[in-house]
Design a protein around this nucleic acid. Structure first.
Lengths: 347, 347
DNA sequence: GCGGTTTGATTAATCGTTTAATCAGGCATA
DNA sequence: TATGCCTGATTAAACGATTAATCAAACCGC
């Protein structure tokens, strides 16, 4: 009934070579004292037998599973593929596997997801927290990726600076009235980005902020944002806090007969997959997820290596904010002092 | 140096209750012969001690890790979050963890990613294959999710039928000249979808197919698709094989001053996250990923349970094609026999 | 009251790896 | 030559769970 593992194990190699298992183990790991030529012979033989070490056996003995957990509470965020990819890449470069857990956007099950990972024996985990949740340390080292302004954050993109880049870009193009379009006011990330935009504006500039989720509570999901009205009020730039919202703004404006960027400018955040290929391609700000993931994972790996006794720690890294990079494409252009109003009639 | 696991283990519970470890194990798993009241006592005590079984110990003994691998070779596909979420959900409902592996779109590393999973001791894996690759069975049971027409496929959405739904919808709206917009001609999925559209057209209808990747090889990535010209040629409907391409088409048309759906219709596939919130909301076709994932995972779990000896098998399921559902939104409307040509001048 | 079954528990082996402890020689030094 | 050290290997004890085999006692029919 019990299924024996298919491949050879240490003891098969050992008996086949007439040595002890301990020697084989030492030779392969390079730890004990084994003569050079014997190491050679053992390595060779192991390779030709196609030996692959049993993670279970190793884990049982060492207490380390070699697996990290990745908690993505808001998987609907289209940023997810990039994050998962970056984490997986960094982790496997560091010799770790990645176990995913998501809570389908439900706050209550975030804890449950974390527990499942702990039960599976992960050595540590990377958490991208759901907005406004605070991670109290779990039963293993935890790296948090949120925003630099979040307490307990390990490493994150410098969303604030990214916002400033956008503001300065728009200011340089002559825009003076900017509408910031965000989704959710509780999101640490979106708040940082909005704050950055405001802080980067010149004294003679004016901004308002539109929170979509709040709007949809009254007007229903998928409702129009009323951007044409905003254009009439003199806004010439729409700075969305995510490319998803930028896309929504862009198509609504286009449908209303307002041309981007001739009439108004639209910018986003995150450089999501569609951003370069829509018309016009989106001006946006990109975070270096590979770098962030690399820092998070190596900080985590360090902590795991250091902590002989397994305990819950919020991991800290030396670099905790990574600069975002402005990508200028064609959705932003010089401010048009008098956007064409002819089209506005038929709204 | 070696870090002892923090929590209690079977033997701690056993000595604390004055019974043997075997009895505790039996009581918790409900397998051997233990008296009812002792089972009760043991379960209670284990719970209050916060006992969590060691996956490593169990895995070593049983040869089962309780983990499935998920191979996503083309992670750039924005469909990924839904797939990953569905698989993770189905797997954790079946008591499995999910280890992810991606090959960053690189064909060569797909095999390497699979090997990494095998080395980590997964009990089976779900593979969404990169286009045009054929999965030869690995060292464990494998479920393939691609298209029903792919040899070796386990379960998938009925992309062909989805295509027919689109064609019939457009036919019913009076469209007679349809431009199919796909990305890559080698993709099994996209080919099925295109085939379905063609097969669902009425005899008096005409279609052409535009493959973006081929176009971009000459004209450069992100180049215009020249859809305005197609409108002039009499095409009134643009059926994209993914919402990503639909979005690209929609924005290009809108930017050219062509109104959707008044002038032409645009449809997509997959009901991606932005589809309901762009203007106009996209008519698309949705696959029931939860159902597909559920079927794939339970077929996999069955095979794993059945196969005492661990071997590589391509898993088969009873239901291998799952119907797609047409979602009619506002990007498709009645065919306009003479789309306005006034705007066409300024192209 | 005696062989035989059933019940409820224990014993002990096993999965594959790591690693501390031990040991047998060889070699150098006193 | 006896002592000590170094080298290169072996021994054996874990890690934590599962499970086949065993065992003691109770219970049954005859």
């Amino acid at each position: 009934m019990a299924s024996p593992r298919p491949g050879p194990n240490l003891s098969k190699i050992a008996t086949s070579l007439g040595v002890s298992v301990a020697t084989v183990s030492n030779a392969l790991s390079g730890k004990g004292r084994v003569s050079g030529q014997l190491v050679e012979r053992i390595r060779e033989h192991a390779a030709e037998l196609g030996y692959v070490p049993s993670q279970a056996g190793r884990a049982l003995r060492t207490g380390r599973s070699g697996v990290l957990g990745l908690v993505l509470p808001d998987i609907a965020n289209p940023l997810f593929p990039k994050i998962a990819q970056a984490i997986e890449f960094a982790a496997s470069a560091a010799g770790y596997g990645v176990l995913i857990a998501d809570s389908r956007g439900d706050v209550a099950t975030q804890t449950e997801a974390i527990n499942r990972l702990v039960e599976r024996g992960v050595d540590g985990m990377v958490i991208i927290p759901r907005r406004a949740t605070r991670i109290s340390s779990a039963a293993c080292p935890v790296a948090v990726i949120d925003t630099p302004s979040t307490p307990g954050n390990t490493v994150a993109a410098d969303h604030w600076q990214g916002g400033r880049e956008i503001a300065e870009h728009l200011a340089g193009l002559g825009h003076r009235r900017i509408l910031i379009i965000g989704n959710n006011q509780e999101s640490n990330v979106q708040n940082d980005r909005a704050g950055g935009i405001r802080s980067g504006m010149r004294p003679d500039m004016h901004s308002e902020t539109l929170w979509i989720e709040k709007l949809e509570q009254d007007a229903g999901s998928g409702c129009p944002l009323g951007l044409a009205e905003k254009v009439r009020q003199g806004f010439t730039a729409f700075a969305a806090l995510s490319d998803l919202q930028a896309l929504r703004a862009l198509t609504e404006l286009q449908q209303a007969g307002i041309t981007v960027p001739a009439d108004v400018s639209v910018t986003g955040f995150d450089d999501l997959i569609w951003s370069p290929v829509v018309t016009p391609p989106l001006t946006t700000v990109r975070m270096d997820m590979d770098r962030i993931a690399g820092i998070a994972v190596s900080a985590l790996a360090d902590t795991i290596r250091r902590n002989s006794i397994r305990e819950g720690v919020l991991v800290t890294a030396e670099i905790e904010r990574v600069a975002m990079q402005l990508i200028v494409r064609q959705s932003s252009g010089p401010a048009n002092p008098a956007p064409k109003t002819s089209e506005m009639e038929n709204m």
